[in-house]
Structures are given as structure tokens and as C-alpha cells.
């Protein structure tokens, strides 16, 4: 009984509320395939959430619901109490690929959001445009340095950068807009292990500095635990046709307590890989 007001208070304080969300895909004339089956979550400001699960369990679908790129068949997704209707600047987005505009240089990619929102199309005709643009560029160079990139990289096109550098620029591009939530969909999955480790450190540092709420989708339980303050595992508890739901939702133990962290990783692995596989084995198989 005592928990009800506490839960209500948490819901009120929640930045993102996902309430009894169902998603199903289907083609005309065929039975719909359930993807998410009544998922409910509350995410408070400043949390770093990892969403983990096997391929096809609906992790990215859940992210797209928060992004409002997709609408649930039933249920609600709220950002600060308002229903999500379409993607907007409140949610930054870093996908696994196609994260940068190929026709723009690194600097133009980072300043794109500021240009369209602050200057606009007709603002290009204004004499103050040059001053504003210089301000944006100065800010973009700050982010560029923070991401560990050189100033000479600013004039490069995305195809001239490595995968890791591209993702660094994509993060800068999203963060410069100061989003309320940063949504990262398998953002490091295509990177080699060394680059991936560097990116994990970077995103963790950025989270500490900015306090931005982050939703990080990954299929790697170890990465999920290393990065996040809370891990949510999705899985299908019923048959394949039942759709996924939250099978684990726990705060990550203090990183200093290595034994507890190792045990926690094992627990997430058991939720994610029901066959008893470990992250290393899955990584090796992927490699």
C-alpha cells in the first residue's frame, strides 16, 4: 500500500513514461506479429539506461517509440508528461549508421541543427547571419575538441572519417542541441573493440559532464552494464508470438565492487541469452 504514492511520485518525476505499450507489425491478410507486449517504464532525468536484449526483441522499436518515429498500437509514451507525436529536438539521436549528412563537412554537420533552428532559411538573408554562424562554429569547435577530434577534421566529409570518428561527430551533432534525452541505437556496434572502448569512456564522461538522460540500446550485456546506471533487459517470456516485455530492470551496482558487477553482468547475460551464453562467446561468434 505504501508503495503506491511512491510509485505515483516517481511517475510524476519521470522524464519519460512508457505505459502499457503494445506494438505489432503485420501485412494485410496475415496475422500481426507482436513485438512489444505491454511494456511499462519510467525513466527519471539524468539516468543512463541501457536497453539490452537479443536481436529482434524490440529494443530498437522501444527507442523509436521514445523518438516518436513510430507510434504504439496501444499505450502511451510521454516525455515530461506530454505525449510524443513526432521526432523533435528534445530527443537527440545517434543511430548505428547513416548518422551524418554525407554532403556536409564535419563542421557543417555539427552546426546544422543550430543553423536551421536559430538562423532558419530567411535568416540566411540577414546581415547578422555571419556573426551568428561564427558563434555556432566556435561552439562546434569546442565540441570537436571535446570529442577528441582535431580542428583539421572540421573540413573533412564523413566518408573521409573512420567509423569511430563519425560516431564522435554524430554525438557532438546531437549534444550541441542540448537535448533532454539522447537516444543511441547500437551506436557502437559497428566499431572495432579498441575504438568501442574509447567511445564507451567518452560517452560515460559526457554523461557525467552534461547530466543528459541517455537511452542506450545494445545487444552486448557487458557494454550495457559498464555504461549504464540502470539496465533494462527485454525478452519474450511466452512463445515467439507473444511479443517482448521487460524481463529485468535493475540499477547497476557500484563499479568499485568488481565481484558484484561481474555477478550482475552474469545475471544480465542470463536474461539476454537464455542459452547460457556469455558476452565473450557472443562477441567471438560475431567476430
Amino acid at each position: 500500500m505504501d508503495n503506491k504514492p511512491a510509485a505515483a511520485a516517481q511517475r510524476q518525476a519521470a522524464m519519460i513514461s512508457i505505459r502499457d505499450v503494445h506494438v505489432a507489425y503485420g501485412q494485410p491478410g496475415k496475422p500481426a506479429r507482436k513485438i512489444l507486449n505491454g511494456v511499462s517504464l519510467d525513466i527519471v532525468p539524468g539516468e543512463f539506461i541501457s536497453i539490452v536484449g537479443q536481436t529482434g526483441c524490440g529494443k530498437s522499436t522501444l527507442l523509436r517509440l521514445v523518438l516518436a518515429e513510430e507510434m504504439p498500437a496501444s499505450g502511451q509514451v510521454l516525455l515530461e508528461g506530454s505525449p510524443r507525436t513526432r521526432p523533435d529536438r528534445h530527443c537527440g539521436y545517434v543511430p548505428q549508421k547513416y548518422s551524418l549528412f554525407p554532403d556536409r563537412t564535419v563542421l557543417d554537420n555539427i552546426t546544422f541543427g543550430l543553423e536551421v533552428t536559430e538562423v532558419g532559411f530567411f535568416g540566411n538573408l540577414s546581415p547578422a547571419r555571419r556573426v551568428r554562424r561564427q558563434e555556432f562554429q566556435a561552439e562546434a569547435f569546442g565540441y570537436l575538441r571535446r570529442m577528441g577530434l582535431r580542428e583539421s577534421d572540421a573540413i573533412k566529409y564523413p566518408h573521409q572519417l573512420s567509423g569511430g570518428m563519425q560516431q564522435r561527430v554524430a554525438i557532438a551533432q546531437a549534444l550541441i542541441m542540448r537535448p533532454k534525452v539522447l537516444l543511441m541505437d547500437e551506436a557502437f556496434s559497428a566499431l572495432d573493440p579498441g575504438t568501442r572502448l574509447g567511445m564507451q569512456r567518452l560517452i560515460k564522461d559526457l554523461w557525467r559532464e552534461t547530466g543528459t538522460t541517455i537511452l542506450f540500446v545494445t545487444h552486448n550485456p557487458r557494454e550495457a552494464v559498464i555504461l549504464a546506471t540502470r539496465v533494462i533487459a527485454l525478452g519474450r517470456t511466452g512463445g515467439d508470438d507473444d511479443g517482448a516485455n521487460v524481463v529485468l530492470d535493475l540499477p547497476v551496482p557500484d563499479a568499485c565492487d568488481e565481484q558484484r558487477v561481474a555477478g550482475f553482468i552474469r545475471r544480465v547475460e542470463q536474461s539476454t541469452f537464455p542459452d547460457g551464453l556469455r558476452t565473450e562467446e557472443v562477441d567471438a561468434a560475431e567476430a
Partner: peptide, 27 residues
């Protein structure tokens, strides 16, 4: 044009026509 590019445009504050002309048309 990859859907990610269009969603990215929205998340960077671009409207429908900014995405159409400043992202997709240019590409």
C-alpha cells in the same frame, strides 16, 4: 535516402521543408 537521415533532421530541429530541401534535395 536512409530514414535515419530524416529522423536525424527532425531531432536537430529541422521542419518538413528544411528536411526536404536542406537534407534530402542536397543529397
Amino acid at each position: 535516402v536512409p530514414k535515419e537521415q530524416i529522423v536525424k533532421g527532425f531531432t536537430l530541429g529541422a521542419g518538413d521543408f528544411a528536411i526536404t530541401y536542406r537534407i534530402v534535395f542536397k543529397q
